[in-house]
């Protein structure tokens, strides 16, 4: 089954609102929220959890104060400045610890434990549009890339079980670890941009990333009427690069209003914007 991931480079261009609408328009699909860092798709889809699972990733160092002789080995060897010298003991700052195990191995007193790190939870849920696989990384936790990979594998299993015809994912902003993890093995990256200098700048970087990983790109210009000149600049860029322009969607306050109602834009009205979103989705399907 084909896999489509909606990404943007720049945050706040409308990825999640559009993914929600696409989930409504698509038939028998598995929905996946890969923006595990700050997931929002559940706000539109109100998933009912069928199962909840803990997500552990890596470990963290924990100094046993009763055994620590404060020799300073860990302090000296930690490359992340994670060892703090407290009043009369050493402590590891969990926000800085990368879980590399160097301090654990080199502590002459064997005073450092190395428990697994509980980083979040993931869920398989039912929504009015189909099965949804999603997660919640605990705030401040790390290794969202690993969680993204886990969710994608789970979505593929669900897709096999249900014999679904599509996996649609809402991706993370940026070009780093969670985005890279969401691209491997994806058939199409739908990049949502906006007609601003920042939008174009960030589109270029994330499109380069897709090209680097040989993932096919389709571009959607959201809020296209914000600056028509910039919008046509983005069109020129797509033409030059050979990226398919799947649609240009105008800014419409109705999108926010439907978000407040916990609905996707294609559900709330048969308005012009809903029609444009529908056309955009059909264009995406046509190149899969």
């Amino acid at each position: 089954m084909p896999e489509v991931v909606v990404i943007s480079g720049k945050g706040g261009t409308g990825k999640t609102s559009l993914t929600g609408a696409f989930a409504h328009l698509a038939q028998d699909l598995i929905i996946c929220d890969l923006d595990v860092d700050a997931p929002d798709l559940h706000i539109l889809l109100s998933p009912a959890k069928r199962s909840t699972h803990d997500f552990y990733s890596g470990n963290e160092a924990l100094i046993d104060g009763s055994r620590c002789k404060m020799c300073g080995t860990c302090l000296e060897m930690c490359r992340y400045n994670a060892v703090r010298t407290g009043h009369d003991q050493y402590l590891v700052d969990p926000m800085r610890c990368e879980g590399c195990r160097v301090c654990v191995d080199f502590c002459p007193e064997q005073a450092i434990a190395f428990p697994a790190r509980h980083c979040g939870q993931w869920f398989v849920s039912s929504t009015r549009f189909g099965t949804m696989v999603h997660a919640r990384l605990f705030p401040g936790a790390e290794n969202s890339g690993r969680l993204v990979t886990l969710l994608r594998n789970r979505a593929r299993e669900a897709s096999k079980e249900e014999d679904s015809s599509l996996i649609l994912s809402d991706g993370a902003p940026g070009i780093g670890c969670p985005v890279i993890s969401s691209l491997s093995g994806t058939d199409l990256a739908a990049i949502v941009t906006e007609p601003t200098l920042s939008g174009l700048h960030d589109l270029k970087r994330v499109a380069d990333l897709c090209t680097h990983f040989r993932v096919k790109v389709a571009v959607i210009i959201n809020k296209c009427n914000l600056n028509p000149e910039q919008a046509s600049g983005i069109q020129d860029y797509c033409r030059d690069k050979g990226f398919y322009l799947a649609g240009s969607i105008p800014h419409d306050p109705e999108v926010t209003m439907s978000m407040v109602d916990k609905k996707v834009i294609t559900e709330t009205a048969d308005s012009r914007i809903a029609k444009t979103v529908r056309n955009t989705w059909e264009n995406i399907l046509s190149i899969l």
């Binding site: 945050g11 800085r96 936790a141 969202s144 926010t256 978000m259 407040v260 916990k262």
Partner: peptide, 26 residues
């Protein structure tokens, strides 16, 4: 953006954090 390791790394040595938000459910 976000709330995981890069975001926490960025703000951890500051004297003040200004959180920019918007009045939408997201």
């Amino acid at each position: 953006p976000g709330v995981s390791c890069p975001a926490v790394n960025a703000v951890m040595d500051s004297d003040f954090i200004l959180l920019v938000t918007e009045p939408t459910p997201f």
